Deep mutational scan, measured.
Amino acid sequence: RQGFVPAAYVKKLDSGTGKELVLALYDYQEKSPREVTMKKGDILTLLNSTNKDWWKVEVN
């Protein structure tokens, strides 16, 4: 499932696989259909980080 999360809630990881991955630093509950819920410690695939406030991710 793809959607947006606050950029301040995730940290980029060095995956070494060519995929950009991020680590969820905090729990986040989606507040609109365009967002996704994540739990602290989740590893997500980063799809787009051009917006400084909201990053598009895919929940694996």
Rank of each mutant, 00 (worst) to 15 (best):
T45V: 15
D53M: 14
V59E: 09
A8P: 08
V57R: 00
S32N: 12
A8H: 12
K31Q: 14
A7I: 03
S32F: 06
S49E: 13
L23N: 02
D14F: 12
V10G: 00
Y28E: 00
G16Q: 14
F4C: 11
V22G: 13
Q29I: 14
L47I: 14
W55Y: 07
L21A: 06
D27M: 03
T45S: 08
V59W: 08
D14A: 12
D14W: 11
V22C: 13
A7M: 04
M38N: 00
D42Q: 13
P33Q: 09
D14M: 11
G41Y: 05
G16A: 14
S15V: 13
G41P: 00
L44R: 00
T37F: 04
G18M: 11
L13P: 01
T45M: 10
K39N: 08
Q29A: 12
A8Q: 12
K11C: 15
N48Q: 09
V5S: 00
S49D: 15
K40C: 07
Y26V: 11
L44I: 06
I43A: 02
L25S: 03
K12P: 09
V5L: 03
K56E: 14
M38H: 00
N60I: 15
P6L: 05
E35S: 06
A7P: 06
L13V: 11
K56T: 07
D14L: 11
T45L: 15
R34W: 15
N48T: 08
K39P: 01
T37S: 15
Q29M: 12
D27L: 02
S32K: 07
K40A: 14
T37C: 07
K56R: 11
Y28L: 01
L21C: 10
V57K: 00
W54Y: 07
W54G: 00
K19R: 14
G16H: 15
V22T: 02
E58I: 07
G18H: 11
S49C: 12
T17H: 14
L46A: 02
T50V: 09
F4S: 03
A7V: 07
L47T: 04
S15C: 15
N48H: 06
Q2E: 09
F4Y: 14
K40T: 07
E30S: 15
V57G: 00
K52L: 09
G3H: 02
L21Q: 11
L25A: 04
E58R: 08
K52V: 13
K31E: 08
E20R: 14
E20F: 09
N51R: 09
V59P: 07
Q29D: 15
A24L: 02
V59Q: 14
D53E: 12
K52Q: 12
F4H: 05
L25T: 05
Q29H: 13
Y28A: 00
T17C: 15
E35N: 05
D42A: 07
V36W: 04
K11E: 14
R1D: 04
D27C: 05
